[in-house]
Design a binder for these strands. Structure first.
Lengths: 178, 178, 178, 178
DNA sequence: GATGAATGAGTTTTCATTCAT
DNA sequence: TATGAATGAAAACTCATTCAT
C-alpha cells in the first residue's frame, strides 16, 4: 500500500498525486486508504517515514567506526547510492520533499537528513576536520551526494563506483593534510 | 508582477500556487494575469526565463577567463551565492523546476542549467580535470553549492567567504595538482 | 438525470446551460454529473442519443408498410406529433442541434434525422413522388411538421387530428394524382 | 458594424460570439461597440431588427395583390428565398433566434414572423382557404419554407425554382379546387 | 472491514462590461 | 471621440474527504 503511494507520489509529486490514483494503484478503495492513514498527508508522512528510516538504517549499518576516513566515507556513500539505485521512486519522493520543505511534514525528512548530517560531521571531526567548518562542509557534502544521485537518475549507465569516488574525493578536501 | 509570481511559486511550488494567490499578491485581478501571460504555465515560464537569465548572466559576467583555477572558481561561486543571497525565492523556484523537469517547461531551465554546467565543466577541464569525471563532478559541485546556500539561510551570520572557500576547496579535489 | 438535462438544455440551449443548473435541477451535485457523463458534451450527447432514439422508434413502429400513402403519412405524422406533444423540451433540444450542427456532436442527430428523412422519402417515392424533388420535399414536410408542433403548443386546444390532416394534405401535393 | 456582428453571430451563435470578436471584426475597439449599442443584447437586437426589416420589406414589396393565388405565393416564396440566398449569414442568425426564442429578445423576431404569417394568412383567406384551418396551415407553410431554406444552405447547388415550386405546390393543398 | 456514491470547496480560464486617459 | 487596461462574476472541471450500506 505504501508501495503504491511511492509509485504515485514519485510519478506525479505530492500535489499531482490524487487519492484516487493511489487507491487504484493499490487495488483497494479510497475509504480504505482513509481508514488506515486518515488523510493524504497521513499516507505521505507514513511513506516518508518508511523511506527515511530505510535510508538512514542502511547508512548506519554500513558504517565502520574503526575504519579510516576514506573507508568510512566510502562505506557511507556506497550505502547512500545503494539506496538510491534500488529506490529510484523513493529517492524522487524524498528529494522533492527536501526541496519543498512542506510545513505540515516538517521534521519528518529533516530529521532523517539531520541524522545523516550528524553522522557525517562526526566522521569528519574524528578524522581531523576543522571544527569551525565541519558543519557547512558536511552540508555541502550531503548536497553533493544528493545532486550526484539526481545526476545518476539521468545517467543510469554510470557505474556507482564513479559516484562514490567522486564524493569521497570531495570529502578529502575537508581534512587538509595534517 | 513576476515578483509576485516569484513569491507565490516559491512558497507553494508550481502546483500549490493558485492564480488567485498570484493576482492577489500582485495587487491586480486575475484576468490581468491572463491578459499578460495567457495561462498559469505562461507566467511560470516567463518567470523561469527571467530568473534563469539573471543567474546565468551573473555567472558569465563574473568569470575571469584568464585567471587561475582558484580565481575562476572563486568568482563563479561568489556570483552564485550572490544570486542566491539576494534571491532566495528565485532559487527555490529554479531548484524545484530542476528536480521536477515538468514536461511542458521543457528546455527552459535545462538550458540555463546546462550553460552553467558547461561553464563549470570547461573551467575544470581547462585546468586539468579528469575528462571522464568532469561531468559528474560538476554536478556534485553545483549540488554542494545549492546545499551550502540552504545552510547559509539557516545560518545567516556565516560570512559568504566561508561558503565560497568551502566550495572552492571541494572543487580543488577534482584537479589535484599534478 | 437526463430528464433534468432535458429541461435545462431546452430552456437555455447548449451554451446557455450550465452544469450547475443541470446538477441543481437533478437534485444532485455537479461532480456526480461528471462522474456519470464525463463532461458537458458527454451528458448532451447522452441526452440527444436517447431523445433521437425515442423519436425514431416511435416513427418506425408506427409505420404501416402495407398501407396506402395516406395511411402511412397519417401514421407517421401521428407518431411525430405524439412525440412532440409528450416531449416538448426534447423536441426543442433536437431542433436546436439540427440547426447548429455542433461539430463535436457530429453524426448523433444527423443520423436520426437522416433515418426519418429516409423513411419519409421512401414512402413518398414508393407512392409515386417525383424522384428529383423528393429530397427537398421531405425536408419541407418535416419543417411544416415542426412549425405545426410549435403552433400546437400555442393553441393547445387544437385537436391533433387537425395537425395530422394538415400535414397529410400538404404531403399530398408531392404525389399529384397520376 | 452590424455587418461585423452578422458574421460573428452567424459563425458562432449568440452565446458563442464574444464582444471581443465583434469589435475585432469591425476593426474598432470594444468600448465603441458599447457606446453605440450598450450591451451584447443591444447589438444583437439592432442586428435582428435590421435583418428582420429587410426580409419583411422584400416580401411586402414582392407581393402582387391583384395576382392569382399561385402568382402571389410564387412572388412571396421568391422574395423569401432571394433573401436567404443573398444573406446566408443573416438567415442563420434569424433562424437560431426563431428556435431559441430568447426571452430578452422577445418580440423582435416574433413580430417579423407574425407579419409574414399575417400576410400569408390573408392571401390564403382571400383565395378561398378554409377559415378554420388557415391559421395552422399558414404556420405549416412558413415552417416548410424555413426548413427548405435550411436545406438549401446544405445543398447550395439546388436551383431556387425547385424550392419555390415545392413550396407553392404545398400551398396549393390548402385551397382545395373550388 | 470494505466500498460505491456523493459533495464542498477550490482550480484554471473566459467574458461582458467599465474606467482612466 | 476613442481606447488600453482593468475587473466581477461565472463556467467547466477536479479532488480530498465522507456517508450509507
Amino acid at each position: 500500500m505504501l508501495d503504491a503511494a511511492e509509485r504515485v507520489f514519485s510519478a506525479s509529486g505530492f500535489h499531482g498525486a490524487s487519492m484516487d490514483a493511489i487507491a487504484a494503484e493499490a487495488g483497494i478503495s479510497k475509504p480504505m486508504v482513509y481508514n488506515y492513514f486518515g488523510s493524504k498527508e497521513g499516507i505521505y508522512l507514513a511513506y516518508l517515514a518508511r523511506a527515511g528510516r530505510d535510508l538512514l538504517n542502511r547508512m548506519l549499518e554500513a558504517d565502520v567506526p574503526d575504519g579510516s576516513l576514506e573507508e568510512r566515507l566510502t562505506a557511507g556513500a556506497g550505502a547512500f547510492f545503494g539506496f538510491v539505485g534500488q529506490n529510484h521512486d523513493g529517492w524522487r519522493v524524498l528529494r522533492e520533499e527536501m526541496l519543498q520543505q512542506r510545513e505540515s511534514v516538517g521534521g519528518q525528512v529533516a530529521t532523517m537528513r539531520d541524522a545523516i548530517h550528524a553522522l557525517l560531521s562526526e566522521v569528519l571531526l574524528e578524522e581531523g576536520g576543522d571544527p569551525d567548518r565541519v558543519d557547512a562542509f558536511a552540508r555541502a557534502l550531503t548536497g553533493a551526494g544528493e545532486s550526484l544521485a539526481d545526476w545518476w537518475l539521468e545517467h543510469p549507465d554510470a557505474p556507482v563506483e564513479v559516484l562514490v569516488q567522486t564524493l569521497v574525493a570531495m570529502a578529502g578536501a575537508a581534512a587538509p593534510p595534517r
